[in-house]
Design a protein around this nucleic acid. Structure first.
Lengths: 115, 115
DNA sequence: TGTCAATATAAGTACATAGTTATATGATGA
DNA sequence: TCATCATATAACTATGTACTTATATTGACA
């Protein structure tokens, strides 16, 4: 974002292209309220582990998400310090919450918890 | 948008994918404040007429823009009645205005005006 | 009615993207 | 130290995308 609080067109289209994939968009919405690890995404999206890993890499490459290892697992979370976070947040606010996915994980005992 | 004012994930990702192209995103920002015809876009983007036409078609197919013939020209404008217009508008508000492009057209005497 | 200007469509091409399977890496715990 | 679990990467493939050039369509107007 520049001084006017706007984001240049090239940057904006790059971000929107990344969010223009249902899997990644849902990941971002999920991460906005819950940290998740890779194996949880595999379960939620019923998708192969490499496919999930590759989506996360794209989000990580432009620093929309952060990763943090905890024991065996690598947890992903939203990078709220991203220069364009307000822009992203604004978009995510228009999307339906994905709490059901998390609740289902918990119900199945598949929610990873490191305490 | 559903009753909660949210937009379902599939729809949202479809819209974001369309906006995730710098040409189309800039078109939408331009159209938010100015009606434009195809030949103006050709000039602004320095792009072939078929390429412009094809971008406009994608925007038209999901009804983000309307077309209206006036004399020889077909003018495009934002469809403010689109169900997801608030979502789109919100995104466009974060983008830098494109008035310079329009001003340049006018300076070159290439702005089409039907009165 | 025939020509022209503006626009749309069709067909082809090069490159991008999202998956796949196979393999590598790296921490954990017996 | 070795086997295992979670994750990442590499190589490949099928499909999608954004252009290109060539051609069709449509309305305006001489």
């Amino acid at each position: 974002m520049n001084t006017e609080g706007t984001i240049d067109m090239q940057r904006a289209s790059q971000l929107l292209k990344l969010l223009g994939d249902q899997t990644r968009l849902t990941m971002m919405k999920l991460l906005k309220s819950h940290e998740c690890c890779v194996c949880e995404f595999v379960e939620i999206f019923k998708m192969s582990q490499p496919a999930i890993s590759q989506h996360l890499r794209k989000l990580r490459d432009i620093e929309l998400v952060k990763e943090e290892r905890r024991g065996q697992w690598i947890f992903y979370s939203i990078n709220e310090n991203h220069e364009d976070f307000p822009f992203i947040q604004n978009i995510l606010e228009h999307l339906p919450d994905q709490n059901k996915s998390i609740a289902e994980l918990e119900a199945q005992g598949l929610r990873i918890c490191c305490n």
